[in-house]
Design a protein around this nucleic acid. Structure first.
Lengths: 181, 181
DNA sequence: CCCCATTATGCAACAAGTTGCATAATGAAA
DNA sequence: TTTCATTATGCAACTTGTTGCATAATGGGG
């Protein structure tokens, strides 16, 4: 149950409309939490019914844009949820299943996919580093900025891990495959 | 759509019953892919209907234990799926949402939860290292063993990343919190 | 022998994620 | 002015994950 809380967080950072939220979940928030516009609207409706958010007056422009803001009850719920004890989510990635599958089946095209993944992770790592340079350079930041930087660093660490892992995987997959040079 | 393929992989590694699969998904396979027994039975039924697996004769013992094995069509499907191009799954962890939430709300009990997580990740890292020492030490292994080792290494890398990240997070959370020493 | 605990299988309800499709409102181009 | 493209919102169906609960079969203990 994290989408409602991700929405509360995003709206506390900046009140905005459903479609703007969708855009933010495709980009900045989407680096660590993803959601489709269908999900977002579904959840916004629920949050409103629960009295955690309220819609503002509709805005001018194309469509029927309507912004939302967090109410005190919503803020309190987010505080409660943030501080509660929760279990870490174990690693769960289908690439691991595929590696185990190739182990038992023999050579497949998996190594090509991993090469493609390596490129994608390198690209994303470069993007994160660029964002870091652009947004988190300079003087002593506020606590808020430090925490935001921390979340970005998690992304950097994750992409770095995947880059390293892809390289190792390629080495293993190529080493014993008679069809590869 | 990975549970069916995880099941095919597990059954190719070793034919066994639904409840044994449930046990393996709680332990070894569960290090990189998790599933409840309800899911497993649901999926086994589907795999059987699709002609990818077949049930063997019931075994002696408590309950109604029935083992499954993979059929040629199932093996072929697993080969196809393993080699196909697939997108990497982006980072998605509610701890990131919570850190962003604390950034906008102010101090909560999140640091206590992260301290608890640090302990859990250290413990799991030690477990993985022990498994590595026990199962993957010695001479030149087969390709299969190398790939299995690789998947375990992914677990080691992931736990190491979480250990490092928890430490950084604790440092940031504690640094500016007037309620912490 | 009977009872209880354990093992094995599986139905059901609900939540959350994914994908397809739709309507309403507006702005820009012809 | 009309038409088309874009923006914004949202319903619906399905899949996958989560949790509760249930029945059948067997073994062990009293």
């Amino acid at each position: 149950m994290s989408l409602p809380h991700a929405l509360l967080t995003a709206l506390l950072e900046r009140p905005c409309s459903g479609s703007e939220l969708a855009g933010r979940f495709d980009r900045s928030i989407g680096f660590f939490w993803q959601a489709t516009h269908q999900q977002i609207y579904r959840e916004l409706k629920r949050l409103e019914e629960q009295g955690w958010i309220a819609a503002l007056a509709p805005e001018a422009g194309r469509g029927r844009k309507r912004a939302y803001q967090v109410l005190p009850a919503g803020r309190e719920e987010l505080r409660r949820w943030t501080g509660e004890a929760r279990e870490p989510k174990p690693l769960r990635d289908e690439l691991m299943v595929r590696l185990r599958a190739e182990a038992v089946i023999g050579p497949t095209d998996l190594v090509r996919d991993i090469e493609s993944r390596l490129a994608q992770h390198l690209e994303k790592l470069a993007l994160y580093r660029e964002i870091e340079r652009r947004d988190f350079t300079g003087d002593t930041p506020s606590r808020q900025r430090e925490l935001q930087h921390l979340v970005l660093q998690a992304g950097v660490m994750a992409e770095t891990l995947w880059v390293d892992f892809c390289r190792e995987a390629i080495a293993v997959l190529v080493a014993d495959d008679p069809n590869k040079p």
